[in-house]
Simulated scan of single mutants.
Amino acid sequence: MITKPVNGVVNILKPPGMTSHDVVNVLRRIYKTKKVGHTGTLDPAAVGVLPICVGRATKIAQYIAGADKSYRAEITLGVVTDTQDSEGKVLSTTDASFIKEEHFKEVLKDFVGNIKQIPPMASAVKIKGKKLYQLHRMGQVVEREPRNVKIHQLNIIWSQGWGTAHPKALCEVHCSKGTYIRTLCHDIGEKLGVGAHMSFLLRTSVAQFSIDNSITMEELEEGDHQKVIIAIDDVLKDYPVVTLREQAVKSVISGASLYPPGVLKKPKDLAGGQLVRLKHDDELLALAKTQIDEHDARKRFVFKPVCIIKID
């Protein structure tokens, strides 16, 4: 039973068959609030980490969604689908029995680092106000601009079927936001000359949220709903703290910038454009960005709130 407003993040282990919005709807019912949002969609067929923001934590969703992510993805060679995953219609099949594991591993190296991806048609990217998956359902294919993403790590951890028509490989991927793993699988197949699709996907982490400390939907329904909430301050713990003087609190939570006279304590090694937590009496007030005050002869920092956490 929820007896007071809840503000924080729940680290959900999304099951297959549910959309990210389905999960949001369940948490809206459990926590009795409409202020619930996910931090980046996970395809219905995929499973894994899906941080869900509740209450005032919805304000920080973008800062979680923008973090690096890790996956385990199974690639099936020699089969191309129109969605680049196993949910789509098969477009072509090729005998990939001549591909050796050693060759596959070598090709993976070409996809580590900064790469370009063309978003798949079956995606939520908008072009001229229409989501690509809506156009895809209508049988349309439109031109898409390549996007820059970064693959930090790409390793094979299991494989089978080398020497057969459609070998499979399970890969571990650590990547930047905006990376389409099914497109990565598709492009690896293109590079090998046999085509491929993503036949399974497990997201193992989003920022600090790991599959090791995630909870299932069943555990959420049956357990203590309050205890599984991760406080906003804990979610943002990697951002340095700037402590305010009492007289600056009211102006900061109204959205005004924090100037040096209102600062009680701050780290010595701050940089321009850096995000920091603004706190008073150990209470989180806002997330702010550091800016150099050009009107200050000493070029000291001011802190511009980008996300107000405390509501007066």
Rank of each mutant, 00 (worst) to 15 (best):
H280V: 12
P120K: 00
P15I: 08
D296I: 08
H225R: 06
L108D: 02
L287E: 00
Q62S: 11
T81D: 01
K299Q: 15
Y133I: 06
V173W: 01
K250W: 12
V149N: 00
F209N: 04
C171F: 10
I127G: 03
S70Q: 12
K299Y: 12
S159Y: 07
G17P: 02
I2S: 03
A67M: 12
D43Y: 08
Q153R: 15
P119C: 05
K126A: 06
R137W: 04
S257W: 06
R182G: 02
M217W: 09
S159P: 05
N114R: 15
Y31D: 04
R137I: 04
T41H: 09
R245C: 13
Y239C: 08
S159M: 06
E221F: 15
T83Y: 04
D234G: 10
T179F: 00
G178V: 00
V49F: 03
K109T: 14
A45G: 13
G37E: 02
K304R: 13
I188R: 00
R56W: 08
S97C: 10
E294R: 14
S176I: 08
D312H: 13
A271P: 05
G195V: 03
K109C: 11
G161D: 02
E172H: 12
G273M: 01
K299W: 10
F111G: 02
G78A: 05
P119D: 02
N148Y: 13
A288E: 01
V263C: 07
N25D: 15
K227Q: 15
I308R: 09
N148T: 12
I309F: 06
M18T: 10
G40N: 08
S159R: 07
L220P: 04
K32H: 11
S176W: 05
S251E: 13
V47E: 05
K109N: 13
A61N: 09
V241P: 07
D296K: 07
I211P: 00
T39F: 02
S199T: 11
G48D: 00
R56M: 10
L50P: 01
G255A: 08
L27K: 04
Q117D: 03
L77A: 05
Q160L: 13
Q153D: 14
D22L: 08
T243S: 15
A122V: 07
P261Y: 06
D281E: 15
R203A: 02
V26M: 13
I12C: 05
K130P: 13
D238A: 07
S210G: 12
D187V: 03
C175A: 09
P44V: 08
S159F: 07
D95W: 10
Q140D: 13
N148I: 13
F200Q: 12
I215M: 11
N11S: 03
M138D: 15
F301S: 01
S254H: 15
G129N: 03
Q134I: 13
H174Q: 14
V276H: 00
T83E: 02
S176K: 07
H136V: 03
R28D: 07
V276N: 00
Q84M: 09
Y63G: 05
D43H: 04
E294V: 14
V80R: 00
E106T: 14
N11Y: 01
T3H: 12
T58P: 01
P240E: 02
V206S: 07
G139E: 09
N155E: 15
Y180S: 00
S159I: 05
Y63H: 10
L13I: 10
S214E: 01
G163T: 09
D85N: 09
K4V: 12
M121C: 06
I115F: 01
Y63S: 03
D233F: 09
L42K: 01
H38Q: 05
M121K: 02
G88T: 04
